[in-house]
Amino acid sequence: MWIAESVTFGGSALDRAAPLRGDAPALADLQARGRIVPLWQGKPLIANGALAWVAPGSPVLAEATAPVFLGLEDGIGWFAQDISAWVPPEAEAVQPGFLDPSLQHHPSLPADHTFTELRAVMAQLSPRHAELAATARALLGWHQSHGFCAACGAASTMVMAGWQRSCPVCGAQHYPRTDPVVIMLVTRGNRLLLGRGTGWPEGMYSCLAGFVEPGETIEAAVRREVFEETGVQVDAVRYLASQPWPFPASLMLGCLAEATSDTITLDPAELEDALWLSREDLVQVRTGLHPCVKPARQGAIAHFLIENWLADRLN
């Protein structure tokens, strides 16, 4: 797709300045005058629909973990720090559910600066801010869940400006992981196959998706996942676009898959429902007029793929 990198979290061309990650003096200089994005329980700081940042020494960072280096913009360093140890007022506690709508406000910040669920604002962010937020969330989440060496079990330490963990006991080196996930536009003529997971909000349907297994190609993963979830057979598979998806650490691989059958046999362990929708049906969906199906969430690659299929921009 010629517009593939316009998907949310892609296309920013951030200078990640990898050679600086091991240069402690250069990083110290950059951090002293840099921009630090604090995240609380995976939520970035947002203000007026944009990613917000604080200066080094801000009271917000009083209980923060070590900074991770995200990259450079016009010579200015962007960093991220996890402040999940901070306890917000009880009234601002996280609200469980498919998407947490709660906002947390740190008393040292202006009233319009809140920690906000990234999925709720991802479509509003500029490409650069979206890439920075996704990178920060993925990296900090990895450090939070990978604090011990997978080889010997000892506590590991952050090195290389947050892009590596090192075990002081056995010397093993660990790197941020990314899990490949295929997500499919399964078509048959004028129709598209969509499904919904158990517990999803009412009316929410999306493209089928699943993790790529070890020893498996992207194409094989597409065919296997579609058949396992719906019993539909797929022949030709073509890659279209990708999207980093830091919830917690996936890379979504968008593909076009041509179905050779249309009978749906659901696996209830995988999906609550699946259905075929025509282009005419999907036009109703996108305008909010369909009686059963609601539009895909803006910012997600499923929405991106469906919109471009409807506009006949897949090439």
Rank of each mutant, 00 (worst) to 15 (best):
Leu118Glu: 11
Asp15Pro: 00
Ala302Thr: 13
Val186Thr: 15
Glu270Cys: 11
Asp267Glu: 05
Pro127Asn: 10
Asp112Thr: 10
Leu266Pro: 00
Pro295Leu: 07
Tyr175Phe: 13
Val94Ser: 15
Ser102Arg: 08
Pro295Ile: 09
Glu272Cys: 01
Pro214Ala: 11
Arg224Pro: 08
Ala172Phe: 00
Trp142Ile: 12
Pro244Trp: 07
Arg224Val: 08
Gln31Asp: 01
Leu305His: 04
Asp235Asn: 11
Val159Ile: 13
Gln164Gly: 05
Leu132Tyr: 15
Leu72Ala: 09
Leu99Trp: 15
Leu139Lys: 13
Ser102Asp: 06
Pro214Thr: 11
Ala123Val: 07
Pro295Tyr: 05
Arg33Met: 05
Thr114Met: 08
Gln81Val: 07
Glu280His: 06
Leu61Gly: 14
Phe247Ala: 12
Asp262Gln: 05
Gly71Arg: 01
Phe148Thr: 14
Ala52Lys: 04
His129Leu: 12
Ser102Thr: 15
Gly34Thr: 05
Asp74Pro: 00
Leu70Val: 03
Trp245Arg: 00
Gly162Pro: 13
Tyr205Met: 10
Ala130Arg: 14
Gly203Gln: 03
Gly75Lys: 06
Arg177Tyr: 07
Phe148Arg: 15
Asp29Phe: 01
Asp23Phe: 00
Thr230Pro: 08
Val159Tyr: 04
Arg119Asn: 08
Val234Lys: 02
Thr260Tyr: 01
Gly254Leu: 09
Gly210Ala: 14
Asn190Trp: 02
Gly42Phe: 05
Leu103Thr: 07
Trp78Leu: 03
Ile218Ser: 11
Gly210Ile: 12
Gln81Asp: 11
Gln81Gly: 03
Leu140Val: 13
Asp112Tyr: 04
Gln173Pro: 01
Val60Thr: 12
Val121Leu: 05
Glu307His: 04
Glu213Gly: 12
Glu225Gly: 04
Phe148Pro: 02
Leu140Arg: 10
Thr65Ser: 13
Ala52Ser: 10
Ala221Asn: 09
Met1Gln: 01
Asp15Gln: 03
Lys43Val: 02
Met184Tyr: 00
Leu139Pro: 12
Glu216Arg: 10
Ser166His: 15
Ser250Cys: 06
Glu73Pro: 00
Gly57Ala: 07
Arg223Val: 12
Trp40His: 14
Arg119Trp: 15
Asp267Thr: 01
Ala151Phe: 10
Glu258His: 10
Ala220Asn: 14
Gly97Arg: 04
Gly254Asp: 08
Trp142His: 15
Leu305Pro: 07
Asp267Ala: 09
Pro180Lys: 00
Ala130Phe: 05
Glu229Leu: 03
Lys43His: 07
Ile3Pro: 00
Ala52Pro: 05
Ile306Ser: 01
Ala24Gly: 03
Cys170Gln: 09
Pro168Ala: 10
Glu229Ser: 11
Cys170Tyr: 11
Ala93Met: 15
Glu5Cys: 00
Ile83Ala: 05
Glu90Ile: 07
Leu14Met: 02
Trp2Phe: 00
Gly195Glu: 05
Thr65Met: 02
